[in-house]
């Protein structure tokens, strides 16, 4: 199957034991590939409820981009999303997604003979990638793009803390530069108390945070941090490398800082690389942002292979 490039072929595939899962396998054409082909398969995991083409068709472009470097790339839909069917069991998503990632790897292994895999996901796809990487020894790398967290359970205290930061950022970066917001203020159609709190937090929150990070963290925050650090320890022992990519100002980046505090600087010890892309929104809508994102991922993937 074609995809506008003689160096690639695309094939519609179905697999899965508990639900019929649908995907597209993008592969390099052996006859035109040059150099040593990477012996790692790549899986692209759904960004929320968006079907496998990804936001603004990002996954289609990324699959073809990586395949030109010799990677086999599978973009597929989890059960109940896109073209995939519903499961007949009652397994919760945090378990069924791990199982379906393993089934996708089984299928790719049958089709391509590959034994090592790399998981890439945006938003909830990043969270699933991070969690699934801990479950299957075939995973050697994970790219998390704007992960909303690194555990399926986000402590309330962390949500509250991140929400404050996001509200401050919204008022400073979006609302203040929007004439419609000023019109609302003039017409007294705003919650002055919320705005005041958000601006107070933006001004003095950093000071408060630096003080609180020196003291004891909330117990549930410790539990979540422990979960992420356990996973990172697991990655370190297995040699799994990770690329944590965030848009500047994204919720997930605030979350990471809330969760790890100063430990963020020690991520490299666990084979994790943190990168921030400026001027991009959560789903990398603009093409200039997509190009930058794809180049960063490509560079990292080639380094891994």
């Amino acid at each position: 199957m074609g995809c506008g490039d003689n160096a690639l072929k695309e094939q519609a595939v179905t697999f899965g034991a508990a639900a019929p899962l649908v995907g597209i396998l993008t592969s390099p054409v052996a006859s035109v590939s040059t150099g040593k082909a990477p012996e790692i398969g790549v899986l692209l995991l759904n960004a929320g409820l968006l079907h496998r083409i990804g936001p603004s068709r990002l996954y289609v472009k990324l699959a073809r981009f990586l395949a030109r470097d010799g990677f086999h790339v599978l973009r597929f839909d989890f059960s109940g999303i896109g073209d995939s069917g519903r499961r007949r069991d009652t397994l919760p998503f945090e378990k069924s997604s791990n199982q379906e990632v393993s089934e996708a790897m089984d299928h790719m292994a049958e089709q391509t003979g590959l034994k090592r895999f790399l998981l890439i996901g945006l938003c909830s796809g990043a969270l699933v990638s991070f969690c699934a990487a801990g479950q299957d020894p075939r995973v050697v790398g994970v790219v998390c793009i704007n992960a909303p967290g690194f555990s399926h359970i986000i402590p309330d205290s962390v949500v509250a803390q991140v929400s404050k930061r996001q509200a401050s950022r919204y008022y400073l970066q979006v609302a203040l530069s929007n004439p419609a917001s000023w019109l609302k203020i003039l017409r007294r159609r705003v919650d002055y108390l919320s705005i005041g709190r958000a601006l107070w937090n933006a001004t003095f929150g950093r000071l408060q945070r630096s003080k609180s990070s020196a003291s004891t963290a909330a117990p549930d925050s410790v539990a979540a941090t422990h979960g992420m650090q356990t996973q990172l320890e697991n990655f370190k022992q297995r040699g799994v490398r990770s690329l944590l990519l965030f848009s500047e100002g994204d919720w997930g980046l605030d979350y990471l800082h809330c969760e790890l505090g100063k430990s963020v600087k020690q991520l490299e010890q666990f084979g994790a690389q943190l990168e921030v892309v400026t001027s991009a929104d959560h789903i990398f809508t603009l093409r200039q942002n997509q190009r930058e994102l794809m180049n960063r991922i490509r560079t990292w993937c080639l380094g891994l292979s």
């Binding site: 603004s56 919204y170 970066q173 500047e248 400026t278 991009a280 603009l286 997509q290």
Partner: peptide, 20 residues
């Protein structure tokens, strides 16, 4: 956008509207 884009003008591949 929480972080303003560098440019919203047409790029070499044409006008970008909503990512297309």
């Amino acid at each position: 956008f929480l972080s303003k884009p560098r440019s919203t003008t047409p790029d070499e591949a044409g006008l970008d509207i909503m990512g297309f």
